[in-house]
């Protein structure tokens, strides 16, 4: 019977703490507005958006852990990644998830876009959600593009050389854009450094902001339902 007394004391303590926090944070309100929302009957195609978010969080986490050992310099980038893969405990797992996560994220985001297109979920009142989503798709591709150079291996180096050259084929401004992307006329330490900055600071910052807007709009308008003959 002693243990039951303990249990009740714990419960009271929990209730007190919860009430104190609820008065200040509005936990109950949050629960009704964010979690206990009504939704149309969903199916598995509806999970692609949250799967993209999950992959983004996973990429952010593994990416942050990779920067613990990665060095963005032509002298050390390749060796530091080799060290992550062979020298550090579970480095292969962290990099493996980040590498394959990038591939899967592009795939999942793209299929998510196709699903929204096929069910015409971009129509009133969700036009802005779609626009932000297009931005997210492009940013995901941008993350793939900038991240690809970072291992500083043959494949990365030459693929980026060609890709920046393609951007440089633009009439009039091509040369300027090429130099702006590369940080000079050639692929160099400056290119690696600015791709790194774009990959870990600039693009993720924009990505997080757009994800926030995307989620706000989804909560505001609710998830769209699968269309039937009546729609």
């Amino acid at each position: 019977m002693h243990s039951i007394g303990m249990w009740q004391k714990l419960r009271t303590a929990y209730t007190t703490v919860y009430q104190w926090l609820d008065e200040r944070l509005g936990l109950g309100e949050m629960y009704t507005n964010l979690l206990d929302r009504p939704e149309p009957l969903g199916n598995w195609w509806n999970t692609l958006g949250s799967a993209s978010l999950f992959l983004f969080i996973l990429q952010a986490a593994t990416g942050i852990f990779l920067t613990v050992y990665y060095t963005p310099s032509p002298d050390h980038a390749y060796d530091s990644i080799n060290y992550i893969m062979t020298g550090v405990a579970f480095g292969w797992l962290v990099r493996g998830i980040h590498h394959w996560g990038a591939t899967l994220m592009v795939l999942v985001v793209f299929i998510h876009m196709l699903r929204v297109f096929v069910t015409a979920s971009y129509k009133y009142p969700r036009e802005l959600t779609w626009l932000v989503g297009v931005g997210l798709l492009l940013l995901t591709l941008g993350m793939g593009f900038t991240g690809y150079l970072l291992p500083w291996n043959q494949k990365a180096y030459w693929a980026t050389t060609v890709a920046t050259q393609i951007a440089g084929s633009m009439p009039f401004v091509g040369d300027f854009i090429l130099k702006a992307l590369r940080g000079g006329p050639d692929l160099s330490a400056l290119t690696l450094q600015r791709f790194f900055a774009a990959h870990i600071w600039i693009l993720p910052a924009v990505l997080i902001a757009l994800i926030g807007i995307h989620l706000y709009l989804i909560i505001k308008h609710g998830e769209s339902h699968f269309p039937t003959k009546e729609d």
Binding site: L58, A61, T62, V68, V88, A89, F90, L93, V94, I97
Partner: peptide
């Protein structure tokens, strides 16, 4: 599954 290996990953040089 991700957290436990990551702790080892982070403190590896100390071990």
């Amino acid at each position: 599954v991700i957290g436990a290996p990551v702790i080892d990953y982070l403190v590896d040089p100390a071990l």
